[in-house]
């Protein structure tokens, strides 16, 4: 079976980020998963066990002082060395801010091309095909790379498949020196305390709030309904712009694209750019006081009403239902 390289993202403390299981799961659909990590000296061996449990057959660690201090270069240098060592049929990289730079540079460096933002991959007659969901899920397209290395950036949270656990064979090599002027990481800011809610990407239920919530204080209502449903919290761009929530909550064309079992839109008008990030949800519920809001065009269940009246009643009804169901 062909080798498939996967770039493992690590946190500032060297831990494996949440993108790894999906990337290795995707690689296992195509061939033998080889995990590639750039790590600080002496820290690589520690991650090999966990990467094996996630399904990596080989773990290639390039260790050097630059890892965590310089942006993208350590990962690029590690992957370039791994491409020579493993002659892979494809390289899978998370479509995240940190990692897609590596994908672009690797394509130029190795004479490859990038299939961008894939939501699925498959192998067909010896060719590796990337499946994309474009224009807010209006279209599904398939693409592949001709005449060079296949590099695929994978949309975070989109791959559900997981690989069977393996005992990874570990290779540790020194990280080669940087070869172009570096972008230096001056400071790492960790996000605030964990909210205990499901992550937005890949969530099975999402409750989002828009400008209709009116203030940051009122936005708590969105969180309360999310907690009653066990859902992740999302937002429209207008709610983000108004400072109700951080940008990482944004659902839509330029935010996160979600496809949950249930999507609840509160005080969101349903602009086309918002719908682009949620219209492939299985069931959509909308509460909006404007009867003509475009969000109702995609809602399976719409309530023309005031969120401040309806949502507290809804939370009560959900809690009551869960109480009876528990008996």
């Amino acid at each position: 079976m062909a080798n498939i390289l996967v770039l493992i993202e690590t946190s500032s403390t060297g831990g494996i980020k949440a993108s790894a299981p999906g990337l290795i799961g995707a690689a296992a659909q195509l061939g033998t998963p080889v995990a590639v990590v750039a790590a600080a000296p002496g820290t690589g061996a520690a991650v090999a066990g966990e990467l094996g449990r996630l399904g990596a057959a080989h773990v290639y660690v390039a260790e050097g002082e630059d890892a965590g201090r310089i942006l993208a270069q350590p990962q690029l240098v590690a992957l370039t060395a791994a491409v020579s060592a493993y002659a892979p049929a494809a390289v899978l990289i998370s479509n995240s801010t940190e990692s897609r730079e590596v994908a672009g540079r690797l394509a130029i460096r190795t004479g490859g091309a990038v299939a961008a933002d894939a939501v699925n991959v498959r192998s067909e007659d010896g060719r590796i095909v990337a499946v994309h969901s474009v224009f807010g899920g209006d279209y599904t397209t398939e693409s592949w790379v001709r005449d060079g290395l296949t590099i695929i950036t994978i949309r975070p949270g989109s791959i559900q498949e997981r690989a069977a656990a393996a005992t990874a064979e570990l290779t540790v090599a020194p990280l080669a020196a940087a070869d172009f002027p570096a972008a230096i990481i001056e400071q790492v800011h960790e996000a605030g305390a964990d909210t205990g809610r499901p992550a937005l990407r890949g969530a099975t239920k999402v409750v989002s709030g828009g400008r209709g919530l009116g203030s940051k204080d009122n936005f708590v209502l969105v969180e309360q309904l999310a907690d009653a449903l066990g859902a992740a919290v999302g937002a429209s761009r207008a709610a983000v712009d108004a400072g109700y929530v951080p940008q990482s909550y944004q659902v839509g064309q330029t935010g996160v694209a979600v496809s949950p079992q249930l999507y609840v839109a509160l005080g969101i008008s349903g602009a086309i750019q918002h719908r682009a990030g949620m219209q492939t949800s299985k069931t959509i519920v909308a509460i909006n006081k404007d009867e003509d809001s475009p969000i109702f065009e995609v809602a399976d269940f719409g309530i023309v009403g005031d969120v401040f009246t309806v949502v507290p009643q809804l939370i009560e009804a959900i809690n009551a239902h869960q109480l009876t169901a528990a008996h």
Binding site: T141, E142, L149, A299, G302, I303
Partner: peptide, 27 residues
Amino acid sequence: AASVVGSATKRPARAAGTKIIDDGTAA
């Protein structure tokens, strides 16, 4: 090397479902 598009399919449009006006029982 080049990235080439093989096929494209359109997802069927989503149809609107039930829409009710809140009269106190909508929740």
